[in-house]
Design a protein around this nucleic acid. Structure first.
Lengths: 120, 120
DNA sequence: CCAAACCATGGACCATGGTCTATTGTTCTA
DNA sequence: TAGAACAATAGACCATGGTCCATGGTTTGG
């Protein structure tokens, strides 16, 4: 499919898709036609983009995502891939616990605010 | 205390502290001395910075943190503060579930990679 | 008393992750 | 077949969150 359709279906802008491609998160083949240089994207790319975009939403950087994509579809050997994935999972879990700390702090603050309200 | 000590104790660079102050995350009083314009930071600021910096690590933007700080120490009324805090907690929980999605995806990918290894 | 260490300010600089625009070429459709 | 819609490329632009540097003033330890 061409970039317009991919954009439609992925919910990402053409510019963003091109950015991701330039950064090696996805790849495309040259168009079937010889008369243009339109990119042609396979259906797999759509799945890849879904992962990329949920990763981005979760705050994973483009370069980290590139490593993960390489690990998944990877030119690198499987044990190396395993390492990358395991490391990233640990990192994400750490991130979750950081967020949970902040939530706990907010919950405590909320208590105080509510107490303050009751006193009024 | 002066910014150098605050930097030491908070683990943040002077520049970062000044940035945060400029962005309204913390505040300082003018120095006791009249002969200079050094900033003077109370011990409370240290606690505030600890929160700010864990918030930053958790990926919360400076402007969001500013809203939270206002809610905590706030000039704004308590029920408004409550709203801000509750909203931010919900947002953070959403963020956690996004990250968990990614983790689940990675776990699945890991399975596949390991199966691949076994087949070899 | 003097140098080293500290402070404030402002602006330059950087990376990241996008968006927007202009230009040029291609395809689709009325 | 003309014009609208689409595509590629390059470069400018933007916000965010920091760091670094130059300047000039202040404090402090030896």
């Amino acid at each position: 499919m061409k970039i317009g359709e991919l954009s439609e279906r992925s919910g990402l802008s053409r510019d963003t898709i091109r950015l991701y491609e330039k950064n090696g998160l996805i790849s495309s083949s040259a168009s079937q036609s010889e008369t243009n240089n339109y990119r042609d994207y396979s259906d797999d790319v759509l799945l890849q983009l879904r992962f990329v975009s949920s990763g981005r939403e979760a705050g994973i950087s483009i370069s980290d995502l590139r490593e993960l994509m390489k690990a998944f579809f990877g030119t690198c050997d499987p044990s190396e891939a395993e390492n990358v994935i395991v490391a990233k999972m640990a990192e994400l879990k750490e991130r979750i616990s950081q967020i949970e700390n902040v939530i706990a702090f907010l919950a405590a603050a909320l208590e105080k605010v509510r107490d303050g309200l009751h006193e009024t």
